[in-house]
Design a protein around this nucleic acid. Structure first.
Lengths: 358, 358
DNA sequence: CTGTTAGCGCATTCAT
DNA sequence: ATGAATGCGCTAACAG
């Protein structure tokens, strides 16, 4: 504890001659601690690994030496010795600024932390081409498992790694051409439920706004929307579907055009949080006339009375981490496909009845 | 070096007989690749380290061997060899579900990725007592630098590590008893600016709602609020200040009591995003009567016409990462205190004039 | 341009 | 209950 350093004088007197005793200039190693405590490196190792037999008195000498030297075990070396596998899990998300993914990351981190593991976070920025590169970076760091939000068209590049024993868990979307567990939402059923609720209050002309339906989630949600309308005999839904790139003025213009057209829907469903933002902005003052339900809950949606198809993103992350831990325990077994339930939360915007034709 | 070992037979066709050639059962190492390519391990190392002189033909043989064996360099071993320091930066945030911190994390991750580094994410869950434990976990993994949102009352426990050369960058709040760079917002000036704008449209009775003012940010913002009111001679502000734990029904009740009291303010300022949520919920239908400005922007605030004191959280993270990189290049120099500017964004809620007394 | 030797910090044999 | 030797995968430091 005393930086000003003056050689150990009495007692076991061992380390008096060894160099890095008190020097704070370089990191203390097992050997340094061993020297100061007058034991072998292995004994120090045992003390820090926990589960070994070390005499109480010896243990104390080691601990006090470690404290003085500010010894901190090197996890890198430990991992290397343990077959080159670390204690971290990599999470590859898409758009790092999307609150949904962040909540998922939070869920993963919490669950991993409960089990002494840490999370390395990486993002593809929703660029399919960067997925493999990002994954590669994590694998070089020897993450014990991967949780990914797949964005590349194909994950077969991970097959070799999986065979080597690295579990891969996909979140939000299932993997393509890869054996992996998946945690997904009840996208189709959830969207259908919301549309049925709109139908129940009288809507038939219902719009659907989302990103271009390339992604699994969007396809599923679009399908759920069509399902529910088909149930009441409405099948020509394309005229109310708008699948544009979100977050642009263009997107809002697209929605605005839709709701002002002669064939305007009386209600609109948005396929994800970005799309919801576009629709809500486009609706503007007409929020009281046109019913709205969005997929994904968001901050203050309750205060503004926005109905949503919600779920617990923390839970999604937690389950992903649980799958990781289970796979590390028991690597075999068929891939699991886990659905996290969604829930329609009615807060007003989705319960507006259709306006009688003027 | 070769555990299964059977002498290299010679000739380019060599490796046909060596064991781990095609076997995908265990990870290939430098030595495996070297054997298959008929070169030394060091040569393979040179190829993968990039900057060394290797004959074109040799390089190709190595690359093709590496490809066949699915060789992936082990960053753990590499780091160990390089003085036991990894290529990752640890980010310790508080409440992992707070969108602000996540945006900061996103900014850090992006900037680090541009420089080939990765981020380990850990959270204190806003528990002061857990900060040191969490930091310890990261240090054991030999992160090259730490970015932390300080929550513990004191960061002196990091002094030894700093001396060993690990840069520490504090975000959102400065460190206590530790030499470290800080990236903070213009909390006081930003809040004062917002209050002045309210004063400009006629408000004098202005409320301030926030968490208990233990944290630096809250103290600063409260001070800014008082500053601006003092400028127009209003000094008895305590009667409109409410510093409660956010996110509870209790918080909303507190705000509701404030705005219905005989001495009710005609405008309310919220000290952070959680507080904003409470106030907006509490205002309810009276959003048109009582002016409101919140610290921290949020999703869809524009669509709902909420005025805010905003800033770019991605930029906060980006700057933190830049400081990390600069400190790694040049470890000396006085600690920097960097202020990221805030900006008042007027969207309507903050421009409501005071209602004439009934 | 390429190979040899040695060792980063730790833990797994085996001894004792 | 403790210690000695050995090597995890990789790369400086030197040869050559």
């Amino acid at each position: 504890m005393e930086p000003p350093s003056n050689g150990e004088t009495g007692g076991p007197a061992a380390a008096a001659s060894s160099r890095p005793t008190e020097s704070t200039l370089s990191r203390a190693t097992l050997a340094d601690v061993a020297r100061l405590a007058g034991v072998s490196a292995k004994t120090v190792s045992r003390v820090f690994s926990g589960n070994a037999y070390v005499a109480g008195e010896t243990r104390e000498r080691v601990m006090s030496a470690a404290l003085r030297l500010r010894f901190r075990p090197n996890d890198l070396a430990r991992s290397l010795r343990h077959g080159g596998v670390s204690n971290t899990v990599g999470f590859v998300m898409g758009d790092i600024t999307n609150p949904f993914y962040f909540q998922v990351a939070a869920g993963i981190e919490r669950e991993l932390a409960r089990h002494g593991m840490t999370m390395i976070l990486a993002a593809t920025e929703d660029e399919p081409a960067s997925e493999e590169r990002v994954v590669e970076t994590l694998l070089k760091q020897r993450v014990r498992a991967l949780v990914i939000v797949p964005i590349a068209p194909d994950q077969s590049y991970l097959e070799g790694e999986r065979i080597l024993g690295t579990p891969v868990i996909c979140v939000d979307r299932p993997a393509t051409n890869l054996v992996a567990d998946s945690i997904v939402l009840t996208n189709r059923a959830g969207t259908a439920e919301a549309v049925r609720a709109l139908v129940a209050v009288g809507h038939r002309k219902i719009g659907f706004f989302c990103s271009p339906a390339g992604l699994y989630t969007h396809q599923q949600r679009l399908a759920g929307y069509r399902d529910a309308l088909a149930e009441v005999g409405v099948t020509d839904t394309q005229r109310w579907e708008r699948l544009d790139d979100p977050d642009g003025p263009a997107a809002q213009a697209s929605v605005r055009a839709l709701i002002t057209s002669p064939d305007a829907p009386t209600a609109v469903v948005a396929g994800n949080n970005h799309a919801s933002a576009d629709v809500i902005r486009a609706l503007g003052e007409r929020r009281d006339e046109i019913a709205f339900v969005g997929f994904d809950d968001f901050q203050l949606a309750d205060a503004f009375g926005i109905s949503v198809i919600a779920y617990d993103p923390l839970d999604v992350g937690r389950r992903a981490a649980q799958r990781v831990l289970e796979r590390l325990e028991e690597p075999t077994g068929a891939p699991q496909y886990i659905e996290v339930p969604t829930q329609l939360i009615q807060r007003g915007s989705g319960e507006i009845p259709p306006r009688p034709a003027p």
